[in-house]
Write a protein that binds this DNA or RNA. Structure first.
Length: 429
RNA sequence: GGUGAGAUACUCAAGUGGCCAACGAGGGCAGACUGUAAAUCUGCUGCGCAAGCUUCGGAGGUUCGAAUCCUCCUCUCACCA
């Protein structure tokens, strides 16, 4: 049997582990869970780490449970937050939960035919049954406020660093999460809770509750939070979060995110986000160091993670799109594309519709960029022109350029571009 | 409830009657260089081709002239109760 803990360790994912956990996991096939917050109707790549942990867990023969926090999502976890959270209304929450559920099924094997099929639970299902009196008597009684206050997540908010203080609601959060663990321990014989290192406090409230209320022993394990070498937040781009949902973040952009990782980060990511074995990874790292400009690591990570998330087909399209957008393709190359290929490549690129007659009459460059919502104002277009950053169909143009029918791609599109990475499509109707 | 401080562009933050479309920093965008990188250098960062126009929490007022002075309002923070 594969050593799950060792696997996480050499991949540099392990942060904190309760004593005896490794031993227990080696000797027993057990059940473990990770909670996912339904703060949006899609997970983003930050959630990929816990997902991958569950995948490793399942691979090692254990039984993974993914918990969707329908109830805890209503309370709001104060960990890592310096401000009070906004609460989600029930309708949004329901939508988010179903979105998150759908995504998790892509990564974990929920097939009941196998022995250690993954399970999906929603803590709202049991939390909704509990009355306040019940909760206060049966759960609250076992945990002292002193214990709760000692948690970092709470201390931080009570200290003078925090401007807003902390509501009772958020203070209670750890009891909710702790109760989840207790519930799964009782109902599903779940012995282990995992999560990001910021969850340590919440997780140990769970093991504490299990110890006091059920005289049981449960285990905990956390993984390192993903950081980036330049200090910026992982999983964010200027355009927002990088989502797992293809509708929110196109596979092309998803792939690009990994491709643009720094060398330093790529060495970490390849261990964390791919399932390649140690030898393969070490070989790749060596190769990469010999020829860093080839970006072997980034490409491999992009390939593995994009295929895992969006499938083979989407990955191939992302590659094709990348080579057209960033290769030495010219206006001529672009014009050889048929409509379908063109649309695949530029899937997700913002676009606007323009009447054919406008192009036939000749469209000046300034209004072409400003009036369709690509750039904010005429002034901005003029500025950009001065910077020599405006291209039409991948060719730099000056302010006297006029778009005509000869610039149409597939007789239907004009590709506008600001700088190297920012595209916009005019679609002729 | 009382007292005090404050609200300036994406963020922080100067500006206390004309020299203010508003110092500076960060962020963002672009150009050069490069590996679609990092670092570095340069330019831009309210609208307008321009004349000019609209901005400094909101509404009024004083003034030839207001981000700056006055009145009221809204909100935030701190201390006290």
């Amino acid at each position: 049997m594969m050593n799950f803990v060792e696997e996480l360790r050499w991949r540099g994912m392990l942060h904190d582990i309760m004593p005896e956990t490794e031993d227990y996991l080696l000797k027993n096939k057990t059940t473990g869970y990770i909670g996912f917050d339904p703060t949006a109707d899609s997970l983003h790549i930050g959630s990929l780490v816990p997902i991958i942990i569950l995948m490793h867990f399942q691979k090692a023969g254990h039984h993974p449970i993914a918990l969707v926090g329908g109830a805890t999502g209503m309370v709001g976890d104060p960990s890592g937050k310096s401000d009070e959270r906004n609460l989600l209304d029930e309708e949004t929450l329901a939508k988010n939960i179903s979105g998150v559920k759908a995504q998790l099924t892509r990564f974990l094997n929920f097939d009941n035919d196998i022995e250690n099929a993954a399970q999906l639970v929603n803590n709202y299902d049991w939390m909704k049954e509990i009355s306040l009196i019940e909760f206060v008597r049966d759960v609250g009684k076992h945990i002292t406020v002193n214990y709760m206050m000692a948690k970092d997540s709470v201390k931080k908010r009570l200290s003078s660093e925090s401007q807003t203080g902390m509501s009772f609601t958020e203070f209670t959060y750890q009891l909710f999460q702790g109760y989840d663990f207790y519930h799964l321990y009782k109902e599903k014989n779940c012995m282990l809770q995992m999560g990001g290192s910021d969850q340590w406090g919440n997780i140990t409230t769970g093991t504490e509750l299990i110890r006091r209320k059920a005289q049981g022993k449960a285990y905990a394990l956390t993984c390192k939070l993903i950081t980036k070498a330049d200090g910026s937040k992982f999983g964010k781009t200027a355009g927002g979060n990088v989502w797992l949902d293809a509708k929110r973040t196109s596979p092309y952009k998803f792939y690009q995110y990994w491709l643009n990782s720094s060398d330093e980060d790529a060495e970490k990511y390849i261990k964390i986000f791919t399932f390649l074995d140690k030898e393969t990874i070490e070989k790749l790292i060596t190769e990469h160091k010999e020829a860093p400009h080839l970006r072997i690591l980034q490409k491999k990570i992009g390939e593995e993670v994009t295929i895992m998330t969006h499938g083979e087909e989407a990955y191939k399209n992302a590659i094709k799109a990348s080579s057209i957008l960033f290769g030495k393709s010219t206006a001529e190359d672009l014009k050889t594309l048929d409509e379908q290929t063109f649309l695949d490549v530029f899937d997700g690129v913002p676009q606007a519709e323009v009447k054919r007659s406008v192009i036939e009459n000749g469209l000046e460059i300034v209004p072409a960029f400003a009036e369709n919502g690509f750039l904010k104002s005429n002034g901005e277009v003029r500025r950009a022109l001065k910077e020599n950053s405006i291209s039409v169909n991948k060719e730099k143009v000056k302010d006297d350029f006029i778009i005509t029918t000869k610039d149409l791609i597939a007789d239907k599109f004009v590709l506008l571009q600001r700088g190297k990475k920012s595209y916009f499509l005019l679609k002729i109707i």
